[in-house]
Design a binder for these strands. Structure first.
Lengths: 218, 218, 218, 218
DNA sequence: GATGAATGAGTTTTCATTCAT
DNA sequence: TATGAATGAAAACTCATTCAT
């Protein structure tokens, strides 16, 4: 990927080193999940932990860099959808699907992503914000077409995707459940008609979800 | 620290001790979340770690006991719903709401709960199974009334509740998002009509979710 | 062995209980070696640890009781040897062989046995003393016949047997080594002639070993 | 307790630190025997357990390092013997004596050494292999001179030394027994004549010990 | 006599992170 | 800038033994 594969640290080039660490980390996180040991990554990359930490001051920073490296793919997915899919609802649907896959790149990734949403300092926020922006793009289009509830915001959709991805870890053996979860979310944001072009959505005129906490008298 | 140094604590009533540990654990988990240290709990309870482990051989067992202690509340919620709510859709809705609250008792609780679903040995499974059974009860009623998609299973709903609860940890400051997540799930399982009494549900004739993985051509 | 196999603790008879514990301990030590957990034995025997400790105040006591139960076998070995073997050297040889087997009853048994030799309080000493007495019996006969060095004492021979048994744990896969160890000890105590009836043993006139620590000028 | 609380210990020379740990460990093992607590050693050395484990990943590694530090002494013993002792039997005798002392450096040392012989992974194996090689050197010479049984192998002799050392822990107060044990082993491997130059050794023509397990009809 | 709850020191080991060199 | 040694808190769990009931 980075092209520094064969001779590790041939030049004592900082950039090369960084790239190499990223490659190794990608591999490691893929194998062990995101909570693997930082030390192990440094060791595998053949650098001292200090070097690792110089490039990426903490796990989140490393994760963020890793995700950024994968951004390209997501961007091209987005482009492809925008190019190929006329129906804004289907477009949103496909984008969320792509996002869901992206977010499952490493085992346990949803966790730090969710955490990042609550912090302002995490380097992962930036990534998240990007995702949310694009999601908003698709969402607005779908809402304009009357295919998505108006009370939904991009951030909520992103969280839904995240939490669905999180839940999927529990149902690895049960693809049906995974599908059901996706379907719930899907039919959750979509208006009844589902269809592009259909306009009426009685409920969605408001910006508030139909059943708030207080709405259901317990 | 625990003050149990000098004289051996009189062999107080076992039940008393157990209860005391539970109280302390409840308090501790409420403060620190479910991943707090077991030893710390023992320390706080003024018992040796051995005592803690005698009563609860591992974290899950402790958690399970804690949840069981809260079961009563959930049971009474269930009873109340069955007594007071005629509409099966609203009933299911309220039950899921109750479940969602229950599952947020401690910070980070959804995680071990989800993990338990993939294991057969965890003492938490029993709790989960119970939840799922009751959920099934409500779900079937709602489905009969045409108010819930037929392709949904109780387990899926439980997972939805779990993952929504999980996501909520990220949006503590943002009640609107939390509501939206709930609403998505809610309008995800409910049929368009939403209504009790209304029968037709064109989609739900099948037991499969409308949009499986393969449905969306990526 | 004890005949209390089928209905555990049918009568609440102390003796029965004791016998049952012994059976279980025998089984357990055979499986796990002598350093297995006392608690586990109690658990397996279906009694509280307190009961176990009432009968056998510590591991050594339990071990001693276990060995005593096996004494019979050793005694009969002794009788058989005395009856059947005319040559005192062969007799000693066979007795030591029997002792070596006895002492390997459980994995790790030589260790506490050796330790017991240094303590006066261990209940295992009694067992050891018995062994040593018998060994002395055979040894003296062999020495009288000129077939064993005079500078050897029964206690030394017992220690040799013990240490050979100890070493054998390391050479499980290597029967040749085990044989060699035995042979070393065997040709160590025996006089050159090896034969019963042969008298001359120039060295053995003294009660001191030929090469003491000081003898070899390092 | 270690006094390393306030300021981070200046990154002293790694070698220095390592050496210090070794000194402390040596002292500690000498006092407490080899099964003393690793943490205690770290504490005594004034370093964190992590530092100890960085240098020596486990107890065996530490022990191996400690032994290696003593190797010099053994090597010089060997050199001295080779230089000063003409008679190969005496040479072997003295080498085994030296080995016996070496192996008694710490209380309980024979145990892990024996265990190492059954494993391929232990860092102690290397040490053992070295010992065995040298022993073989002396043994072959003695055998050529007709002063040691041909059925003995170096490994067996090393085990004998080990087990004798093990047994000696029990007879600390009884030097006579210790001497006797040594003498048994000594007269166990040596041929009757004992003498250098003497060639005939009727038994030793074979590579098998005279009394194998089956040889003695029990 | 039996029970089994309580004790609590003790074990090994990991790891994120810092900082002297 | 890279290094990697040092840190040391923490974690989870065990077990021989005691003693109140």
């Amino acid at each position: 990927m980075g092209g520094a594969g064969e001779t590790r640290r041939a030049r004592s080039d900082k950039q090369r080193n960084r790239t190499h660490i990223l490659e190794v980390a990608e591999e490691y996180f893929t194998e062990q999940g995101v909570s693997g040991s930082m030390d192990a990554i440094a060791r595998r990359a053949g650098v001292g932990p200090g070097t690792l930490y110089r490039h990426f001051p903490n796990r989140e920073a490393l994760l963020a860099a890793l995700l950024r490296a994968r951004d390209e793919e997501l961007v091209s997915r987005r482009t492809a959808i925008e190019r190929d899919v006329a129906d804004p609802v289907t477009a949103l649907e496909q984008w969320l699907e792509a996002l869901g896959e992206y977010v499952t790149a490493f085992d346990g990734l949803p966790e730090p992503l969710r955490a990042a949403l609550s912090e302002d300092t995490s380097p992962l926020v930036i990534a998240c914000e990007g995702f949310i922006t694009v999601t908003d793009h698709f969402l607005v289009a779908a809402q304009r077409a009357g295919g998505a509830h108006h009370w939904i915001r991009a951030r909520d959709l992103f969280l839904s995707v995240l939490s669905t991805a999180w839940a999927r870890s529990a149902v690895l053996a049960d693809e049906t459940s995974a599908d059901a979860l996706r379907a719930i979310v899907r039919s959750g944001w979509a208006t009844a008609g589902n269809g592009a072009g259909r306009t009426g959505d009685g409920v969605s005129a408001t910006r508030l979800p139909p059943t708030g906490r207080g709405a259901a008298p317990l």
